[in-house]
């Protein structure tokens, strides 16, 4: 199979998507997770815009190129614009939440944050905090939830 231009683009799109997925599965750092999400989103956006790509066609703007040349499908181009804007909104929100969380807990590690979450919820509701499903490794145990001053 000869690798033509379109195939390379597809490989790139799928690769970005997989890379992002890999990052989402393996990291626990909140900011890196947001970056991994951005990568995966970029991959999907590329995939979406490629779904309307036709080899050798021109942009879908009337009077832009020669009259008789075929044009690419305009719909995915509009869709991808929508998808990008959605992605921006979600990422901005994630970053804002991360800022607040860092100020509150002083960490961005999701495993530690999950432990804080369970501990805080348990304290609020007066139940025993659950034992973490994911046992911390022996040499670096999770620190006990430190007493914190309540946020104003």
């Amino acid at each position: 199979m000869a690798l033509d231009f379109v195939s390379i683009l597809y490989i790139g799109a799928l690769g970005l998507l997989l890379l992002g997925t890999f990052g989402l599965v393996t990291t626990t750092h909140l900011f890196r997770l947001i970056l991994a999400l951005a990568l995966a989103e970029a991959g999907v956006n590329l995939l979406l815009i490629l779904s309307g790509y036709r080899g050798g066609a021109q942009p879908p703007i009337l009077g832009f190129g020669p009259q008789d040349m075929p044009m690419v499908d305009p719909i995915p181009q509009a869709l991808v614009l929508t998808a990008i804007v959605i992605g921006v909104g979600v990422q901005a929100l994630a970053v804002a939440a991360a800022v607040r969380i860092y100020r509150r807990y002083g960490t961005l590690d999701l495993v530690a944050l999950k432990a804080h979450l369970e501990g805080d919820l348990a304290r609020k509701q007066g139940i025993a905090p659950p034992k973490s499903a994911e046992k911390p490794a022996g040499e670096r145990p999770l620190s006990p939830v430190p007493p914190r001053p309540q946020e104003p």
Binding site: V90, A94, A97, R104, L110, K114, L117, D120
Partner: peptide, 17 residues
Amino acid sequence: TGPALVATVRYLLVSAF
């Protein structure tokens, strides 16, 4: 509150993925 924010951000990541 802290738990609400952490829960939100975890929900956000899952949902966005």
